[in-house]
Write a protein that binds this DNA or RNA. Structure first.
Length: 474
RNA sequence: CGGGAUGUGGCUCAGCUUGGUAGAGCGCCGCGUUCGGGACGCGGAGGUCGUCGGUUCAAAUCCGGCCAUCCCGACCA
């Protein structure tokens, strides 16, 4: 009945929570999951918040096909090299072999740039600020629910710009105004924004920006990435426009994505020994009302009171759990497992006294409230719980961010997945490889803007060029 | 794709060593008693024991092939 201990078996705990909370389960298709209604509802609330911000920053949604010719993927050298190992290819259809194989999109730069070629002739056609919500397929050896599955859901933005400055500004703006705000405000997950080192960059990108979050097991999760491509894709796909000066130029481009993996993140950042703890902004039910009665004489009275209270919670997502075949204690445990932020308990005692028992999942505390004030109280609790979860995660993150003095200490911290480790780096891939081989940890992010360094690389002791954030990662 | 393990009702597993009528807990269905932190009693449904072959009078059990899944490594949102 109880969950595996987080500190003993974190992967087991995660798997159990996701299954028992009815978020998702493994499917008959190896590596691909079934997202169940409770998990999909969380995805929809994430989607709403992010979609709103994408549109507020001037983008429009559109949709490109799931399949596109393999030869398109092959046009950008780094891009194809990066994705080939994970691409599924359709070779047969309509009862015969296809003349030209089609890839199932692992990402859509190829098909989009092959199309943008037709849409861009003049600087007057720019910028193109488009986004799509889609599923993508990347073959996985070792799948894990939400975190790593062969098929996953995401949004991918693809923009084209007149100038380098404009494209660079776009990719940074998305990181801060869409990803960081969505993840921090809606997911209550504090993140560290940064740049990826060359080895961690998206295939084909000149610069990749990231937001990194810390899970409760001390491992990092990349929560969203935004890429600056320069002219890589416009050159590879032969897209040109006539500039204000009349010259012919390749546009500058970006792409950016965040996926259903974030749902795994919310589990691993906020979950505890009782299960999920959902931030109110993502919770399918923000308040659950549990009626408590013995026999039939109290039943009508109590249920009436529950309905009356639910009406006072106008604007909140409320569930009255009036199932008769479960006792209250069972329901308490179930809704705590599912992470519902607030539970109201209403029995004959409360009805007679014009009171309600209020349980908050974030702190695990019960309080008795005046019935007349429960509407107002529930509303203020939503904001309180949202910020408490963020604050708790931030304290955890800060307590698990280390600045080692020596390579020995650095190695020990990373090997034991003690959290984020800040340490100067010379910029050489050889040092990243050594760290990965010895500790399993990778370079998660560099400071958003490069800063002048006067110290030595923690790994090789040569002059440091960057301050880097290191961690084991999902 | 390399190394290790496992396949038995929906789930978790026992039974296999020593071949002989397929079991438990949870879940599910019915009835009743319960109901303020995961209730209990009684009755019931549900399994070609992963698969194909071999040995044997007889195979969940012994032998071999295949398939699948899980864990550990290289890849990844």
């Amino acid at each position: 009945m109880s969950l595996p201990d987080q500190s003993v078996d974190f992967p087991g705990w995660y798997q159990e929570v996701v299954k028992r909370a009815e978020m998702a389960e493994n499917s008959v298709t190896r590596g691909a999951m079934v997202i169940k209604p409770y998990g999909y509802a969380i995805w929809e609330f994430m989607q709403q918040g992010m979609d709103r911000r994408i549109k507020e920053t001037g983008h429009q949604n559109l949709y490109f096909p799931l399949l596109y010719p393999l030869r398109l993927l092959e046009k950008e050298a780094d891009h194809v090299e990066g994705f080939t190992p994970q691409v599924a290819i359709v070779t047969h259809a309509g009862g015969s072999k296809l003349e030209e194989p089609l890839v199932i999109r692992p990402t859509s730069e190829a098909v989009i740039w092959a199309t943008y070629k037709n849409w861009i002739q003049s600087y007057r056609d720019l910028p193109l600020l488009y986004n799509q919500w889609a599923n993508v397929l990347r073959w996985e050896m070792r799948p894990r629910l939400f975190l790593r599955t062969t098929e996953f859901l995401w949004q991918e933005g693809h923009t084209a710009h007149e100038t380098e400055q404009e494209a660079m500004a776009e990719s940074k703006m998305i990181l801060s105004d869409v990803y960081r705000t969505t993840v921090e405000e809606d997911f209550a997950m504090p993140v560290i924004p940064g740049r990826k080192s060359a080895s961690e960059r998206f295939p084909g990108a000149q610069e990749t920006f990231t937001i990194e979050a810390l899970m409760r097991d001390g491992k990092a999760l990349q929560a969203g990435t935004s890429h600056y491509f320069g002219q890589n894709f416009s050159r590879a796909y032969d897209v040109k426009f006539q500039s204000r000066d009349g010259t012919e130029e390749h546009p500058y481009s970006t792409s950016w994505g965040a996926s259903s993996r974030l749902i795994g993140g919310v589990v691993m950042v906020h979950g505890d020994e009782k299960g999920l703890r959902l931030p109110p902004k993502l919770a399918p039910y923000q308040v659950v009302v549990v009626p408590i009665y013995k026999g039939d004489q109290d039943k009508a009275k109590v249920l009436d009171a529950c309905n009356a209270v639910a009406k006072m919670l106008d604007g909140l997502r409320v569930k009255i759990d009036d199932r008769e075949h479960f006792r209250p204690g069972y329901k308490f445990n179930e809704w705590e497992l599912k992470g519902v932020p607030v539970r109201l308990e209403i029995g004959a005692r409360e009805v007679d006294a014009d009171e309600v028992v209020v349980y908050r999942r974030d702190l695990g505390e019960k309080q008795t409230e005046r019935l007349a004030e429960v509407g107002e109280r529930a509303n203020s609790l939503m904001a309180e719980i949202q910020s408490t979860l963020f604050d708790q995660a931030e304290v955890f993150r800060d307590e698990h961010t280390h600045v080692p003095e020596s390579y020995e200490e650095f190695n020990e911290l990373l090997s034991s997945a003690a959290g984020f480790v800040r340490a100067p780096w010379c910029g050489e891939a050889a040092c990243e490889e050594k760290v990965k081989a010895e500790t399993k940890a990778t370079n998660r992010a560099l400071t958003l803007e490069p800063e002048a360094m006067t110290t030595a690389c923690i790994v090789c002791n040569n002059d440091a060029k960057e301050m880097a954030l290191w961690a084991q990662a999902y």
